[in-house]
Computed example of a mutant assay.
Amino acid sequence: MKQNSVTRRLSAQLREKLGYILLFEIADPRLDLVTLTGVEVTQDRSFARIFVSCEGDRYEEVLEALNSAKGRIRSLLARALDWRVTPELEFRIDRSTDEAERIARALENVPETLSVAKDDEGYPLVDDETANADDLSADADEALADEAYAADDEEGARA
């Protein structure tokens, strides 16, 4: 739904009233630990989409409880709001918290290569001991290559 300043204000008002109703007026144990994460209202106030979050294994149970209590919630909203029209309610599960949790778990398993100190250009910084060992191995590799070339030159001269 397209949101502007009026509908955002109406959504905030509806969210506050819905929170109170779910917390104090509805006595369904299936709605324990349910969080209102967002409310969207149309400009004419005839329709409202309510986003809720809960544990991942309770999605169906919570939606069933909300849909069965929809009529009672709507009548309580009619008394609490000073709107001429009471909106039709649609409840949806907000899965953005699941996505955030998945990302947080992925960030906990950072590969070791990402924790290596890097310079401004992104290349790994080399400490002095490692640099010296690398220089020695490079010198040894060069000496072996020189010997191989010399042996090839000798064989070429014999032929």
Rank of each mutant, 00 (worst) to 15 (best):
D32V: 13
D139N: 08
A140K: 14
E90K: 10
A133Y: 04
R158H: 03
E121R: 11
E90D: 07
A78H: 03
T97Q: 05
E129Y: 05
D44V: 05
I103E: 06
R105Q: 14
D135V: 06
D57F: 01
G122I: 03
D120E: 14
L107I: 12
Y149R: 15
A100W: 08
A138D: 09
D94N: 09
A151W: 12
A65I: 07
E90Q: 10
E90G: 03
T37W: 03
D119S: 08
L23E: 14
S68L: 11
P29Y: 00
T35Q: 10
A69D: 06
E147K: 15
G19T: 06
Y20A: 12
T37D: 01
T97N: 04
D141T: 12
P124E: 08
D94L: 06
I103V: 11
A69G: 01
I103A: 11
P124C: 04
L23T: 15
L107H: 10
E101A: 13
G71M: 08
L77M: 03
K70V: 11
R58G: 01
L63I: 06
L136Q: 15
D153L: 14
S137V: 05
R84M: 01
S53K: 06
E155D: 14
E61P: 00
D128R: 15
E64P: 00
Y123E: 15
E121D: 12
D127P: 09
L66P: 00
Y149A: 15
F47A: 05
P111L: 03
D141S: 13
D57H: 04
A100L: 09
G122W: 04
I73P: 02
I93A: 12
V110M: 08
G71T: 13
E154Q: 10
T97P: 02
E147I: 13
E112D: 13
E60W: 06
E112N: 08
L81F: 01
E25N: 02
P111Q: 02
A138T: 07
A106V: 07
S53L: 01
V126D: 01
E101I: 01
R79Q: 11
G122Q: 11
E60G: 08
E154L: 12
V116K: 14
I21Y: 08
A140C: 04
D82P: 04
L76H: 04
R45I: 02
A145G: 06
Y20E: 15
E25P: 00
A150S: 15
D152R: 14
A138F: 13
I103M: 10
Y149P: 00
A148C: 07
D152M: 12
V39W: 05
R105K: 12
D119R: 07
F51R: 07
E61G: 01
D153W: 07
E154V: 12
E101Q: 12
Q43E: 15
D141C: 07
A69S: 14
A104V: 07
V116E: 04
D135F: 11
L76Y: 07
E99Q: 09
E90A: 06
A80N: 02
L136Y: 11
D141H: 09
K70G: 09
L136V: 13
L63V: 08
E129G: 10
T42D: 14
E88S: 09
E101N: 09
A150M: 12
L125R: 15
R74H: 11
E55A: 04
E142P: 01
T35S: 11
S53Q: 03
Y59E: 08
G56S: 08
L63P: 08
S53I: 00
T35F: 05
R158C: 00
D127E: 12
